[in-house]
Design a protein around this nucleic acid. Structure first.
Lengths: 395, 395
DNA sequence: CGATTTCATTCAATTCATGAAATAAAAGGG
DNA sequence: CCCTTTTATTTCATGAATTGAATGAAATCG
């Protein structure tokens, strides 16, 4: 596997075929034709090239046996055809892993460090160091390294400038260019919530959803938006700051320095802060209650403790009102609630739906489905891998 | 002009060239090449066909004379190459006009009727009757009639079903299909606010704005969204109900039956209702204060009358908070405030901006420009014409 | 085993965009 | 007034990409 020609992945239909195979898993050529509206002849011709280049391969394990006629030959991406580095930067933590050509990821290497004390130079150095470690560990059977993706908390501009991040004290640093120069590879930076949204929308059953909002509950409240089938990143990289839409104009002070944000009612730190003031709970780092502390709070509510219950009800109301604004403005087909904070979703749901009924006319409400989405694994790294594979361009 | 071949307007680059000429006015072939990234040879070939088909023509009035070299030959669309009917349905009023191939419109014929009393059958009949009148009046030199566009107040689904409209008592009527059957023409229905947004974004100076929100103040508050350069219509047709996002959860009752909507602070009827309760104003049809009444209210505020002034200030605050949610969620590059209600914009602006400062962190706020946009003519009909020309598909 | 069905490939034909070269139409300079 | 320069447009041969039609391949069914 030496002469892989990844430069010619540009021609439109080659790329579309690769994306389709990546999305819809192992797939016969006929079905490919159906998906991207191309004649069998073209499919045959292009898959022929791709196979010669080693980018795709026929699946050994034939399954769709039943039925008459010549059996389908399933094709899939060769995971090792190429690889890329995926990096996740969050508060006090950098993670890095190897992404393969099929969109999968390898083992994650993590490093704890005090990100708030980093200079912009120090940040770049830390990133480069982690990436070099990951590159050194690339198994020998992998094809060329084609790019690097950076998933970061905060506002990203033009896929390269980190305008602002809660993880950093510095602002407006171009995190893509220096890394690109150092490795001589294309580098793309993206908001972490957008990565997660991309990753979720990648699931086959969600492919048809044109307008999707993924709301992430946790310490903060984030959102990723897929609009018209494409990731919506305002050209500024701002946007999707769902957590900072308003619930009560004169409400409590939020992280962001403003008042009454949804986040200051629904975020973990808000729930724990209020719980602590009313219950007898340990006074730890108020900004980042631990998973155990939060789970304990949920358990309390589930066991019927009135104070804990009412906290989640209040959060549910705030969330419902926030969603009502989202629905009135965008009218997504589907809203998925996920993030570590879904642990409390059942406790919030009733009040959330009551708020929605209260705030929205039926005609609007009926157009949008709202449900929770399990939070098993962190989808951020998977999302940035998909973005790099999609060719940097938002698609 | 008899053998116009409009069926072959589909091939991608033909269509792109026509759209580019429509957007950027009279234009030389060289410049066209620059705009849509096509070689001079291709431009020449395609414009040749289009000219032969009579869709475009060379501009007689040559202007760009100055400079060396062969002078540019400007081309423009032949307005009479084709035409379409544009219809606007609003409360108690139907308007209809002829749209030409260049995107212009002819004289508007209007008819007043009690729309709320119409059955779905009666509505269709009224529409067809108006359209027939318009068709009968098409000047002889026009090319074929290629389609019909319906701009309606309310929620439109799949470009054909009017899910709900404030103008009607009936719901869920397919207004496109029966009209299409009757005239044997493609018919497309669209929300009126979306039409206006499309129409505004059509201006040359706004072509580059990728994410644009157009907020329309008036009796009600509407919004049209251009996201990623394309009109955002939630697949449901809901969405962009900016007027019904929330300002005060327990605020006054809105038209829509819910409480605290922006519209119930900023809408004409809200301003006039509050003004009437505090000032000595005539008690007319509370739902639809007249233009004169509203202008009088603005004049009062401009002359410094404290009660009137404070009304607009309150409206400004509500508007500001509404916009802060919009910006946090979508992060548009530009927000334009327009509609008949801009007459009071100056009175609202200070408080509006104060609210924005109060509600949003600077980093977010700095990404979005907000300004007013003059409301000279009704752009709805122009918008639906553009949509029909764009081929029905949202682009 | 042959008929039928479904999947995949081959090949010639067609369409479409393009680079290079030619042509067109002006200004400027002697 | 003619020749050169400059810019715009067209012509033409070439090449790339997609496709319809025909063919081949691999299974099931009776």
């Amino acid at each position: 596997m030496d002469k892989i020609d990844l430069d010619h992945t540009q021609p439109l239909n080659r790329h579309r075929i690769l994306q389709a195979v990546r999305l819809h898993g192992p797939l016969a050529r006929v079905d490919l034709g159906g998906i991207i509206a191309l004649s069998p002849a073209s499919i045959s011709s292009i898959t022929g090239e791709l196979m010669r280049d080693g980018l795709i391969r026929e699946v050994p394990g034939n399954d769709a046996g039943r039925g008459r006629g010549r059996p389908k030959v399933m094709i899939e991406l060769t995971p090792t055809a190429a690889c890329m580095i995926a990096v996740k930067l969050s508060i006090n933590r950098i993670e890095v892993t190897l992404g393969d050509f099929a969109g999968g990821i390898g083992p994650v290497q993590a490093r704890a460090l005090n990100t708030l004390e980093l200079t912009s130079h120090g940040l770049i150095e830390a990133l480069i160091e982690m990436i070099e470690g990951c590159i050194a560990a690339i198994p020998a059977d992998f094809g060329p390294l084609t790019g690097i993706g950076l998933a970061v908390q905060g506002l990203v501009h033009s896929h390269e400038t980190l305008v602002w991040s809660p993880a950093l004290a510095v602002r407006n640093i171009n995190i893509a260019a220096p890394v690109a120069r150092h490795f001589n590879l294309p580098v793309i930076a993206m908001n972490d919530a957008d990565c997660i949204a991309l990753s979720i929308r990648h699931r086959p059953e969600l492919q048809a959803v044109e307008n999707l909002a993924v709301v992430m509950l946790g310490t903060g409240i984030g959102m990723g938006l897929i609009l018209g089938g494409r990731l919506h990143s305002a050209s500024s990289g701002a946007g999707a700051e769902f957590g900072h839409t308003k619930y009560q104009i004169d409400g409590p002070l939020c992280h962001c320095g403003r008042r009454g944000c949804i986040e200051s009612f629904v975020g973990d730190y808000a729930l724990y802060r209020d719980a602590r003031s009313m219950l007898d709970l340990p006074n730890t780092d108020a900004l980042h209650p631990s998973e155990e502390q939060m789970q304990a709070l949920v358990d309390l509510a589930e066991s019927g403790h009135p104070v804990a219950t009412s906290l989640f009800q209040q959060a549910g109301r705030a969330l419902g009102y926030g969603l009502s604004n989202l629905i009135a403005l965008i009218g997504p087909d589907l809203v998925l609630i996920t993030g570590s904070g879904v642990r409390g979703y059942q406790q919030m749901e009733t009040e959330m739906r009551r708020s929605l009924d209260e705030a929205l006319v039926d005609t609007l409400l009926a157009q949008t489905e709202i449900r929770s989405y399990p939070w098993d694994e962190d989808l951020t790294l998977r999302g940035i891998v998909l973005q790099v594979l999609a060719g940097g361009k938002i698609s």
